[in-house]
């Protein structure tokens, strides 16, 4: 008997709640429809900067904004430069890539050389390698620089979205001893003699030489440094390349 009363109260309370819910602004779900949309992804653009010596092949790629790519002139190169009046020709290539709206310009920097090294007394001739990189045939319009100077800027890749692969430019670097920077040695010999007839004979000769004040085989490496400059279409126009 008692439980049946409780049951009636439960039913009554439930009805009252439903009534209240219906009249007090409550809402309850009727239908639900769901969709999922997936598959959208965006490419994250990257850059690539590499300096490749072609003979022998040595590639240096830039891995971050701090560590540059360099081309090393070794002690073997120093010897080659010292033993040839034409100097040494080093072919190399610069590969760059800037995705999306990012372009890449670059300059080539010749750091200050260690005193008493081949680099200190050398001139550097830079010109585009059109097929034959030779120290014998340096074009008249080649850039001529010394250690401590920079050559550029050069266009690597324009800041447009049409190209997302690397662009390469071949260069020829000729390293030649600078006569003005070499030590000059001269010697004059005079010989005087009196002949049988009492005739005095005098002969004179002299020689001179410019000798590099170093030992090429013991030269530390000298680096040609590639300095990239990333551009946007809003970047001011690139000036004509020069030696600074």
């Amino acid at each position: 008997m008692k439980s049946s009363k409780i049951g009636r109260w439960v039913v009554a309370a439930g009805l009252a709640l439903v009534t209240l819910a219906g009249s007090a602004g409550a809402a309850w779900a009727l239908w639900r429809s769901e969709i999922s949309v997936s598959g959208a992804s965006v490419g994250v653009g990257q850059v690539y900067v590499s300096l490749i010596r072609l003979t022998p092949v040595v590639r240096e790629s830039v891995a971050d904004a701090v560590t540059p790519a360099t081309l090393s002139v070794t002690s073997t190169d120093a010897v080659a430069v010292s033993t040839s009046s034409d100097g040494l020709a080093i072919p190399f290539r610069v590969d760059v890539k800037g995705d999306g709206h990012t372009g890449v310009d670059y300059s080539l920097e010749l750091p200050n050389a260690v005193p008493g090294t081949v680099a200190e007394v050398s001139l550097f001739y830079l010109f585009p390698d059109t097929g034959t990189c030779s120290a014998v045939s340096v074009p008249g319009n080649a850039f001529i620089a010394r250690p401590g100077q920079k050559i550029g800027p050069f266009l690597g890749q324009a800041p447009d979205t049409s190209t997302n692969s690397a662009s390469g430019t071949k260069w020829c670097l000729v390293m030649r001893l600078d006569p003005a920077a070499l030590g000059e040695f001269s010697n004059t010999a005079t010989a005087t003699a009196t002949g049988p007839g009492g005739t005095t004979v005098t002969a004179q000769d002299q020689w001179w030489a410019k000798l590099p004040p170093y030992n090429p085989a013991a030269n530390p490496p000298f680096d040609l440094v590639l300095e990239p400059l990333f551009t946007r279409s809003s970047t001011p126009a690139r000036p004509a390349p020069s030696v600074t």
């Binding site: 009249s23 809402a27 429809s33 992804s41 890539k97």
Partner: peptide
Amino acid sequence: DLVYQASAGSSSQVASLPVLNFAAQQVRET
């Protein structure tokens, strides 16, 4: 920071958007 590639070639890095879930639910208006 720029992302540097170790070797030449096409970029392989992508940013994938999460799955968009769109749910509509009809309710009784009182």
